[in-house]
Amino acid sequence: MRFGNIAAPLRRHGRLLAVCGLSVLLHAAVIAWLDTRMSAPLPLIGNAPLAVRLAGVAPAAPPAPAPPATPAAAPATATPDLPAPAPLQADAPAAIPLQAAAAQPSPAPAGGGVAAVEMPSRYRVAVPPSASLRYEVRGGAGSAGEATLNWETDGVGYRLAVDGILGDIESEGATDDAGIAPRQARYRQGAGSAGIAFDRERGAIVLESLGRSVQDATGSQDGATLLMQLVGIGLADPDQMQDTVDLYVGRPDGAAVERFQVLGRERITTPLGAMETLHLARAGKAALEVWLAPGQGWLPVQLRATAPDGSVRTQVIKQIVRQPAP
């Protein structure tokens, strides 16, 4: 009886323990299932997930230590030796004193619209006395007409008219410390004409036919006065006529430095007889050659123009009339 009484409670407790163990196992299974479901990634709706990558940034290098300051040496300046002016003949016009200076960039004037240019060298210039020149023009087939150059000056102002292989140009102006200083020039082209004006105060050359301006420069010339400026340079000091001569020239379509190469002495034949000359040439699309005669006051006694199409025209002196001094 005692063992029977004890076995009955044990059986009851065994069933209870079995039920509790089964409950524990069921709870563990449920917890494991829930853990699996919660750890899975949730599906996204809409756009794909963005991938972000962080790039390593190299640390900035520390600034290099500044070198110790050392006193800068003052640049040495060399003063060029200027050639002494050549002695002038008693009847030669007085030269305008000028100090030869190296070319320096010219600043654009106030107001804008004008580009800076490199100024050519300046020369000593003597104003040529008044003279009228007549030429015969020779083309590829022989004589092709006549050309003229009329230069009038009182030493202060001037008037110049050329009609020949350079075109039909009228110019008027004055003189300054750089030689001939045009105020305005008119280029006749067929039935019309184109004018330019030299605005010295504003430092501009006004191209009237284009309605705009370009930079002016000291000693600037037009297409006619460039001849007489070359004459004045030779009159003032023949030693300046070496290597090249640069002139800043304004024309209806713009302005530029025109370089004349000094080719040397040359004896030419003219209707006035043989003459010793200095031969200069300007290269370019419209090439120009000039023969200046020192024995004739450095006047241009022969000119030759080569057009872009290769045609050549030459004008040769046949008469020189010198006007009396005012």
Rank of each mutant, 00 (worst) to 15 (best):
121 S>P: 14
121 S>A: 15
121 S>H: 15
121 S>F: 15
121 S>D: 13
121 S>Y: 15
121 S>W: 15
122 R>V: 15
122 R>F: 08
122 R>S: 15
122 R>P: 12
122 R>N: 15
124 R>T: 02
124 R>M: 10
124 R>C: 09
125 V>H: 14
126 A>H: 15
126 A>N: 09
126 A>R: 11
126 A>S: 15
126 A>V: 13
127 V>T: 05
127 V>Y: 00
128 P>N: 08
128 P>Y: 00
128 P>F: 00
129 P>I: 03
129 P>L: 12
129 P>M: 01
130 S>R: 11
130 S>I: 08
130 S>P: 05
130 S>K: 13
130 S>G: 15
131 A>I: 12
131 A>S: 13
131 A>D: 04
132 S>D: 14
132 S>L: 11
132 S>Q: 14
132 S>C: 09
133 L>T: 05
133 L>W: 02
134 R>P: 03
134 R>W: 07
135 Y>V: 10
135 Y>I: 06
135 Y>Q: 04
136 E>Q: 10
136 E>M: 13
136 E>G: 12
136 E>F: 10
137 V>E: 05
137 V>I: 12
137 V>R: 10
137 V>D: 01
137 V>M: 01
137 V>S: 06
138 R>E: 14
138 R>A: 11
138 R>M: 14
138 R>G: 08
138 R>W: 13
138 R>Q: 12
138 R>N: 09
139 G>Y: 11
139 G>W: 03
139 G>V: 11
140 G>T: 12
140 G>D: 13
141 A>T: 11
141 A>G: 03
142 G>K: 01
142 G>T: 07
142 G>M: 01
142 G>N: 01
142 G>A: 04
142 G>S: 08
142 G>F: 03
142 G>E: 05
143 S>L: 14
143 S>R: 03
143 S>F: 08
144 A>Y: 05
144 A>L: 09
144 A>I: 06
145 G>D: 09
145 G>E: 10
146 E>Y: 06
146 E>G: 02
147 A>C: 09
147 A>S: 06
148 T>R: 08
148 T>V: 09
148 T>W: 07
148 T>K: 07
149 L>P: 08
149 L>K: 08
149 L>M: 12
149 L>S: 06
150 N>P: 03
150 N>M: 07
150 N>G: 05
150 N>H: 09
151 W>L: 02
151 W>N: 04
151 W>P: 07
153 T>S: 05
153 T>Y: 02
153 T>F: 05
153 T>K: 04
154 D>C: 01
154 D>H: 00
154 D>M: 00
155 G>T: 10
155 G>Q: 10
155 G>S: 06
155 G>L: 04
156 V>M: 02
156 V>Y: 04
156 V>A: 15
157 G>N: 06
157 G>S: 02
158 Y>R: 10
158 Y>V: 04
158 Y>E: 02
158 Y>Q: 07
159 R>D: 03
159 R>P: 02
159 R>V: 08
160 L>N: 01
160 L>H: 09
160 L>D: 02
160 L>W: 05
161 A>V: 10
161 A>F: 10
